[in-house]
């Protein structure tokens, strides 16, 4: 049985829906990311699960128990905020101990658990500092420790890394994931950063306009996008209209067509291609971008610009702008996708 079950949650402000018909569940120990553009309702959904915002309809079960009307502080849910929400009048230690104090945990037990938490997030020696004396990354660690120390049943993370700079973010998210695995914490992580979602999660819930558009692993989301919105949001994709698809590939389609840049090949003389690599077409290089081990070409094929990723084998030559190439397409990777559903309600 699933550990957290969300059943038809619905929330509106002044007659317009923030989200509706939200159904999903989390298994125990699972790390699930709620991914979507800003304003899609994901943060409000998270707050509803935490019990900080009341829902208008639907139910919420934790471990089989209906907690829809349970106050936030009795749900056993911890949350890390984007703003950290550390208490500025308290030291690191006092911040972390706050939840234990509220639960009236005996002082000796308190200090033992706080020490463990401090160690876990690698903040040893900083216990007596105040939040104003810490860096952003350190603040976020304190916020995480404060949430973990109460041994929550579910951990919610609301864009916890978005206020940090890129290097610290990468570092911290790996640490976050390893702590989560170590403790076997059921975690729901909210972000608008698709790269973060794809690299961290067991499973991703992709949300748009107050609806969950797709629910699947990173692999599934990446290779089997549910609709044009997912294609655009994940990025990197070539998204062709039905007309353009006909022009380039010569195929008849009623829908838009999505092609990943790495599933387009440049024909090499004397090489044999499998049966499903077809649709030869000529194009002209517009320019290219070196992305480390990948070179991303922009190639113009009869007025349609395609992104084509080739492995950067440095021994070989680069195709300069203006070069005329013949392209081939991996037909297994050509997806027809529906236009995104913008209606809400």
């Amino acid at each position: 049985m699933s550990f957290l079950r969300v059943d038809g949650l619905e929330k509106k402000y002044d007659d317009s829906f923030v989200f509706s018909h939200i159904h999903f569940s989390l298994e125990k120990g699972e790390f699930v990311t709620l991914l979507g553009p800003s304003g899609c309702g994901k943060s409000t959904l998270l707050r509803c699960i935490a019990g900080l915002t009341q829902v208008d309809d639907g139910q919420l079960f934790i471990d089989g128990v209906n907690v829809t009307d349970t106050p936030a502080r009795q749900r056993g849910i911890a949350m890390v905020f984007q703003s950290y929400a550390l208490f500025p009048n308290m030291t690191v230690r006092e911040n972390i101990a706050f939840g234990l104090k509220m639960q009236k945990v005996p002082p000796s037990e308190q200090s033992k658990r706080v020490n463990e938490a401090v160690e876990l997030v690698e903040l040893g020696g900083k216990e007596q500092r105040y939040p104003s004396e810490l860096s952003g990354g350190q603040c976020q660690r304190v916020a995480l420790a404060r949430s973990l120390v109460v041994r929550p049943r579910i951990l919610l993370l609301d864009e916890p890394l978005s206020a940090l700079d890129a290097r610290i973010r990468k570092n911290l998210r790996e640490q976050l994931r390893s702590i989560q695995k170590e403790l076997g914490l059921t975690t729901l992580f909210v972000t608008h950063d698709q790269e973060e979602a794809l690299t961290l999660s067991d499973r991703i819930l992709l949300m748009n306009n107050g609806k969950i558009i797709q629910n699947g692993t990173a692999e599934e989301i990446y290779t089997e996008p549910a609709d044009a919105f997912v294609v655009r949001f994940i990025g990197n994709y070539n998204l062709l209209s039905a007309e353009q698809a006909h022009q380039v590939l010569g195929i008849q389609s009623q829908k838009q067509v999505a092609i990943r840049p790495e599933s387009i090949y440049v024909r090499e003389e004397g090489r044999q291609y499998p049966e499903h690599v077809r649709h030869p077409v000529r194009g002209e290089v517009v320019d290219y971008l070196l992305l480390g081990n990948v070179i991303r070409y922009r190639i113009k094929v009869s007025n349609v610009e395609l992104l084509v990723d080739l492995l950067n084998r440095s021994s070989e030559r680069l195709f300069p702008a203006g070069a005329n190439l013949e392209l081939l397409f991996n037909t297994h990777e050509i997806r027809e996708v529906d236009e995104e559903n913008s209606a809400i309600g």
Partner: peptide
Amino acid sequence: QDMLDAAHLLGASTFRAFFTI
């Protein structure tokens, strides 16, 4: 807002949070 939310989730009532935070 965030500080009070955090305090609530950690088990404090609004009254308690007002005096301690």
